[in-house]
Write a protein that binds this DNA or RNA. Sequence first.
RNA 1: GCUCCCUUCGUCUAGAGGCCUAGGACGGAGCCCUCUCAAGGCUUAAACACGGGUUCGAAUCCCGUAGGGAGCGCCA
Length: 468
Amino acid sequence: MNIRTRFAPSPTGFLHIGGARTALFCWLYARRHDGRFILRIEDTDRERSTQPAVQAILDGMQWLGLDYEEGPFYQTQRFERYRLVAAQLLEQGKAYHCYCTKQELEQMRAEQLARKQKPRYDGRCRERREPRPGVQPVVRFKNPVDGQTVVDDLVRGRVVFDNRELDDLIIARSDGTPTYNFTVVVDDMDMRISHVIRGDDHLNNTPRQMNIFEALGAPPPRYAHLPMILGPDGAKLSKRHGAVSVMQYREDGYLPEAVINYLVRLGWSHGDQEIFSREEMIRYFDIQDVNQSASAINPEKLLWLNQHYIQHGDAGKLAAELAWQLARIGVRAEDPEKLAAVVRAQQERAKTLKEMALASRFFFEEFADYDPKAADKNLTADILPGLEDVRARFAALAEWKAAGIHQALEASVSAMQLKFGKLAQPLRVAVCGGGISPPIDVTLEILGRDITLARLDRALRWISARRA
RNA sequence: GCUCCCUUCGUCUAGAGGCCUAGGACGGAGCCCUCUCAAGGCUUAAACACGGGUUCGAAUCCCGUAGGGAGCGCCA
């Protein structure tokens, strides 16, 4: 069997965490089975669909590395096809024109609700032959009135719906445009989708869609309904949480590998394994192992994964992202060698690239003022001789390398009869402006001798000036 | 209201009737290491929603209860 999956977002907003997870699972399933992954943009709601949203979805998928073999297909470009299929259904008596007005429908709904019934269309136009003057009709699908529709869901198991719970849904609006449940079926049929993997919220739509497949004489695909993703508080995902563009994660300094790895473990697992390379995900992914219950986002775990991927990432590749982050805070950094050296020095102490950029400014530009607390504590008169001594040793060093720098520091420390930290920390504040940096020797190596000496002089002057 | 779905540490999860004194991970706590910040190492607290069955035996199967969620549009 040819496995064909699709991701079918409607471009009414950005690609958020929930959508990205759905896309990921579709992609994984196709990859796992040497199938094809199709992207389809469900833009039939012209009011709410926007081009920027389409672009955001495309960008998000690209950033996450979710590539597709076919598409993007746009439903708005397939209206002719939907019209044709609707006409066919009409002709076969499997659909009919309905002339009920919105007011009538609203009233019907209100009455049903008042009777504590489930609101549903009662089929009053089913047998109508004559058009109603002045009313543009909609087309309704003639849903079976009895029997059951069984969804043999790959993650939920067997779910049974009574057809009498379903009503005759509208497949074409009065302006002739098709509606969601209809276009989905036509497309899934035409695109020969073998597996529909989508959010839980569509489980209730599934029997309707299966009935349309049936009417069209086409075999329905297999279905797999994924559990929802909740916000960290267990409530529905909102803009505050993860319902922001996945691109926001890039801006916040996250790596796509981390986001993907985080997402794959939401509702899916492979024993106790937490870290998955793309290859491993593909190799192990199986819908059988998908959970049935909703899961809440845990930002701390995402952060941990991000840190993991920063820590184990290739310095050269991370350097490019770091440069991007630095540029965002107005710091120019062009030397790839230096950037990579900074990454190597920082990669085990940054949870995000944004954080790394913030902590690395001093490598690329002069800092304005010392951090007051750090300066008060470390840049004091009594350390003046130590700093002068170490400055002289640095100036005399034949080679500017971390090992040599460290030796010079040690020599100074013993000559001054200090503890290592007593000299290292003031030195750190002198060259970094604050009390936090990678190990002092590698920090100095990256900074270079000229800048190190210049900043030491600056500190020396600052201390003297302050004492005076 | 009706229909459908879900329920293991705070969170993500392992668990397919005995391997469970319920395992791992994030986060938390403690200790160690240490030139700062980290990283790392070790230790630790923390859960089978509840009630009935079935069975020699249930986190695992069945039924109920409670709680949570989704859907019920000329939205997707």
